[in-house]
C-alpha cells in the first residue's frame, strides 16, 4: 500500500522526464524490466516477482506520449536473443534526439517562427506549435520586438482534420462518407492521404482514391461521416506531390471565371472588387475566379440583390435557386 501512495505523489512529468533521461544515458538500452524496476516514477510501484501488468500498460502509454513529442524512442534486440520480446531493449539514440549542431536561428528568424506558431491558436496544432516554440527558446536566441502589430490566425473547424492528419502521419489508408453537391447520398471513399491543404480559406484533403487509382481533392466540410482508419499502410509521396496539388488547385481557380454585375457602391462592389484576381469587365461588371461552383454560389447568394450573375449559366441558376430557396424557407 505504501508503495502506491508514494507513487501517486510523483507527478507524470517527473516520470516521463526520468524515463527520457534514463534512455538517453544508456548506450546498450534498458529492458522493460530494468526500466520498471529502477526508473523514478515506475520503481515506486514495481512489485518484485509480482504482477506488474498495470505498470506495463502505463509504460506503453508513456512511450506513445514521448514519441509524439518527437523523441526517437527505439527498440533494439538484445545480442543473441533475437525474437525474444522479453529481452527487447529500449533507448533514445542521442544523434536522432538532439537538434543537429549546425542548425541555428537568427533573431529575425526566431521572431518569424514565433509569428508562424501564433497562427495556430486554436485546435490540435496549437499544442504542437506551443511545444515547438519551447524547443526554439531552448536555444536561447533573444527575439526582436515581440509586438509585431500582427495577430494572424488559421482555423481548423472541420472534425475530419485531426483524424486525417493522424492518418497522414502514420501513412494509413482511411475511409469516409463524402457528399458531393447535387447528390442525395454520401458515397464511401477509400483513400491514401497525400496532404492537407488550405486553399482559398478552405481545407482540402488531397488523396489517392483507391477505387479510381488517381488523386482527388476532397473538401473537408463535405466529409459527412467519422473517419475510419484502416491498418493498411501506403508508401507516402514526396513533398513534390503536395506542390503539384497546390499548383493544380490554382489552375482550376484560374480557369473558372464568372462575370457578375454588382450594384455600384454596395458591399458586393467593394468586397468582390478586392477579391484576389478580380478584374473589371464592362461597366458595373466584374470578372471573378472561383474554385468550387457550389461554394461560390453560396457566397454570391449572401449578397442578395447586390449581385447578378451574368455567366456561366450554371452559376447563374445555382445562385438564383439558392435565393428562391432562402426566400421560401423564410416566407
Amino acid at each position: 500500500m505504501s508503495a502506491s501512495s508514494s507513487a501517486s505523489r510523483i507527478p507524470v512529468e517527473e516520470r516521463l522526464f526520468s524515463l527520457v533521461l534514463a534512455l538517453l544515458a544508456t548506450e546498450a538500452g534498458l529492458t522493460k524490466n530494468e526500466i520498471l524496476s529502477t526508473v523514478q516514477g515506475y520503481r515506486q510501484r514495481f512489485v518484485v516477482s509480482g504482477d506488474n501488468s498495470n505498470l506495463e500498460r502505463q509504460f506503453e502509454r508513456d512511450k506513445d506520449d514521448i514519441r509524439e513529442l518527437g523523441v526517437p524512442l527505439e527498440t533494439v534486440e538484445s545480442p543473441g536473443q533475437a525474437g525474444n520480446n522479453q529481452n527487447l531493449r529500449y533507448r533514445i539514440p542521442r544523434g536522432d534526439y538532439e537538434l543537429p549542431a549546425d542548425i541555428s536561428f537568427s533573431p529575425e528568424e526566431t521572431t518569424l517562427l514565433n509569428l508562424a506558431a501564433m497562427v495556430w491558436r486554436e485546435g490540435s496544432l496549437s499544442g504542437d506549435s506551443r511545444r515547438a516554440i519551447l524547443k526554439l527558446r531552448s536555444l536561447g536566441v533573444a527575439t526582436d520586438d515581440p509586438v509585431l502589430g500582427y495577430a494572424p490566425r488559421l482555423r481548423v473547424r472541420d472534425a475530419a482534420f485531426d483524424p486525417l492528419s493522424a492518418a497522414l502521419e502514420k501513412n494509413v489508408i482511411v475511409r469516409f462518407g463524402y457528399l458531393k453537391p447535387g447528390e442525395q447520398d454520401a458515397r464511401i471513399r477509400t483513400v491514401a492521404p497525400v496532404a492537407l491543404i488550405q486553399h482559398e480559406g478552405r481545407w482540402l484533403l488531397h488523396a489517392e482514391d483507391q477505387d479510381v487509382g488517381s488523386t482527388r481533392n476532397f473538401l473537408l466540410r463535405r466529409i459527412v461521416t467519422p473517419i475510419t482508419t484502416t491498418n493498411t499502410h501506403y508508401k507516402p509521396l514526396g513533398p513534390e506531390a503536395t506542390q503539384t496539388a497546390l499548383t493544380e488547385l490554382d489552375e482550376i481557380w484560374r480557369d473558372r471565371q464568372a462575370i457578375v454585375e454588382v450594384e455600384p457602391g454596395s458591399d458586393a462592389a467593394t468586397r468582390l472588387g478586392k477579391r484576389r484576381g478580380t478584374a473589371p469587365a464592362v461597366a458595373g461588371s466584374l470578372t471573378l475566379h472561383y474554385s468550387d461552383l457550389d461554394l461560390f454560389a453560396d457566397e454570391l447568394a449572401g449578397y442578395g440583390p447586390e449581385v447578378l450573375v451574368v455567366s456561366p449559366p450554371e452559376l447563374r441558376s445555382a445562385v438564383h435557386d439558392r435565393l428562391i430557396r432562402t426566400a421560401a424557407d423564410h416566407g
Binding site: 518527437g70 536522432d96 537538434l99 508562424a116 515547438a132 524547443k135
Partner: peptide, 21 residues
C-alpha cells in the same frame, strides 16, 4: 547535452504557418 529536435508535426505546423505568412 543539447536541445531536442522538433517533432514531425511541430515542424509541419511551423512550416504551414510560414507559408501562410
Amino acid at each position: 547535452d543539447d536541445s531536442p529536435r522538433f517533432s514531425a508535426r511541430e515542424a509541419a505546423a511551423l512550416i504551414a504557418g510560414l507559408q501562410y505568412l
